[in-house]
Design a protein around this nucleic acid. Structure first.
Lengths: 119, 119
DNA sequence: TCTATATTTCAAGGAATATTGAAATATGAA
DNA sequence: TTCATATTTCAATATTCCTTGAAATATAGA
């Protein structure tokens, strides 16, 4: 994932309504949710939802398919995976000092120790 | 990590200058970088850098310590870890359908298959 | 074809963010 | 204390983003 793509994705997820859309879609799974139901579920106007859906789509975080009169939105798992990988590998863990376990008390030479020592 | 905290973090990382600051600090490691050197390295004005540093700090992504006349900035590893965990657990992988390996060709019932089938 | 439904697009205004340069604060040295 | 350095704060402007409501587009059924 290129940095510019990551910027788009972060921007997409940095807005309350859009984050709620994503979580809604994640819960729904691969079968997806039609735009109308989303707007209902989140209590926002169709036009406003549409604006945010376009943003999420542009960022590669969701996908759309038409089904009769409805447009069904789903999460784009590859897109989310790419963003997580960017955070882990390209952006932030060049140091390998990041693992996902909670900061263990007996952890060896973790930078978190230094931070606490400085507080 | 609360959703509101995640929103702050995404917003913090969704801006070009700030993402560059973070990557710079990650490269520097726990010893950190003084604000002046950061401004030089990124070719932005001290005042503008300061604005963005405050934003990153507010989001819990960096930490600061004073050392004589300089203020040394470091990445806050716990903060970044928290964000990655939010993406993996709280936000997006409730489905467990996300793992970090690239979409394998023989992967079982991955939603990516459905997406390609619909393209 | 005409009508109803589902959604998007567009334009306008309002709100939040980013950039700039000047002034303020904190530290250390002469 | 006075001066120089390192950084932040502030106010003004510029830019980008969000919301709203009205009009446009696409689909399906009578």
């Amino acid at each position: 994932m290129k940095e510019s793509q990551a910027l788009l994705a972060f921007a997409a997820l940095s807005q309350d309504t859009r984050l709620r859309v994503v979580r809604h879609l994640v819960r729904a799974g691969p079968k997806g949710v039609p735009a109308g139901a989303l707007a209902e579920g989140l209590s926002i106007s169709p036009s406003n939802l549409s604006f945010h859906l376009k943003e999420l789509d542009r960022a590669g975080i969701i996908a759309a398919r038409r089904e009769a009169r409805s447009i069904i939105y789903t999460v784009n798992y590859d897109g989310l995976r790419g963003l997580i990988r960017f955070l882990l590998e390209d952006c932030c863990a060049g140091l390998a000092d990041i693992n996902l376990s909670p900061p263990a008390s007996g952890a060896p030479r973790s930078s978190a120790r230094k931070e606490r020592a400085n507080a």
